[in-house]
Design a protein around this nucleic acid. Structure first.
Lengths: 233, 233
DNA sequence: TGGATGCTTCGATTAGCATCGAAGCATGAA
DNA sequence: TTCATGCTTCGATGCTAATCGAAGCATCCA
């Protein structure tokens, strides 16, 4: 007994409704100010401040001071990963909190998961990259193949710059809605950024939803989506 | 705001010290009775009973009545996965609770993670299977290659019987000590069982530690451990 | 049938912590 | 300097939930 790391401290930190709301909001990948997070959680600024200090103490968040504003973002991808895992458990236990409706639909189709693409479109991207032999390996050990590197470069992503960061380039991230993995890590981030750059997709500023334009979705399908269908037939 | 599943309920469930202790104990993969879990958590049986009902309600545990005993085990592998993730965060934040010493060492070297092998030996097994081309794919999509199937069968594991279960056969599971993936799922379980069968390893009944015999470790090294070393040189 | 064991339910107590008002501190603008 | 904005600290309040004693229920054994 009393083996291993103390889960309780961290889990209790996430387990408060106000803090959980803040963390969920931060899953968008954006850095938010104290007041924004307070509004998001539905508490006053004082309480938000107290919560945020605690989460920083617990290494869940990373603060960034800029003038008189103080921004917070998730400390790292590992945190985001655990949060998605918890969402999966919550969804499985029936603790869905969404108003079912168009909003729910949109989130399931495409949403932001700590700066990369998640939801149905996310898994399509991931499956396609695997099926076409652009990605290989497993989980943490996931990596771009030679063919994959050429493909990515051709798609307009600067791999060289990605490689410099210490964060893992590729990372499989489990989806709470699709229950399948999708692409995280620096590469996942880069893909989403590129989609926005190309005008294929646009983030909803008020939620985690990502809206693909009709043209964007068609283009996406040509490059990624139909790989599976074509191979299956 | 208020998007997605409600993390807070689940996280709060895990976030109580008594409950966290019980969950940690259940990471051994064994099913434990109410009284055993009470002892593990350091609370009376009444409180334990209350906690266990709540965790069952939250779909974290699966109860099993047998006579006048009531056994609990983790509800599924997804739960175990999230718990390991939380341990990773806790370890990263410095919330280690172990008495450093031989016990800590043993756990880092080899331990049980929901019925499969984790720790240093676990990652060695995993790396070896990948390096030798027995496993391919990624994360959830992980699967045995043809070569891998032959190898596993030769090693004395009955794949046919494994295939029948609905649970995923292979699953990458992130390690809190090694910070690397190791093999979970039905296959991971089968490997550990086979190691015990061969007399290579033995579980400590009182903790999550796994003790390899000198002979067992040597044999393990011959089959798995040195694959990397040999390829690197 | 009577007693022992294992678990659950009930009720009362207590402690921890989220919450917010008020005041204080830092930064930026006029 | 003076005012406004954004955040933090302090102190008081109130609520939630963990805890355990006591009693009740189910199962097994003799």
């Amino acid at each position: 007994m009393k083996d291993g790391p103390d889960i309780a401290i961290i889990a209790a930190l996430i387990g408060d409704p106000a803090r959980a709301n803040m963390l969920t909001a931060l899953m968008s990948g954006k850095a938010l100010t104290v007041s924004e997070l307070a509004a998001e959680a539905g508490v006053t600024i004082q309480t938000a401040s107290a919560h945020l200090s605690k989460m920083h103490e617990g290494s869940l968040l990373r603060p960034l001071k800029q003038g008189r504003h103080k921004y917070f973002s998730l400390a790292n991808e590992q945190v985001a990963h655990v949060l998605e895992g918890l969402m999966g458990l919550a969804a499985g236990a029936g603790h869905l909190r969404m108003r079912t409706g168009p909003r729910d639909e949109r989130l399931r189709k495409a949403r932001v998961c700590y700066n990369h693409l998640a939801g149905e479109m996310g898994t399509r991207l991931f499956d396609s990259l695997l099926a076409q032999g652009h990605l290989a390996g497993t989980d943490d050990a996931l990596s771009l193949t030679g063919k994959g590197k050429r493909f990515v470069a051709e798609f307009g992503i600067d791999i060289e710059r990605l490689g410099k960061s210490r964060a893992p380039l590729c990372r499989a991230c489990l989806d709470w809605s699709a229950r399948r993995p999708h692409l995280g890590g620096g590469l996942g981030r880069a893909f989403l950024a590129r989609f926005e750059e190309l005008g294929w997709a646009k983030r909803d500023p008020d939620s985690r939803a990502i809206a693909f334009s009709p043209r964007g979705e068609r283009a996406f399908g040509e490059v990624f989506g139909d790989a599976f269908g074509a191979e299956r037939s």
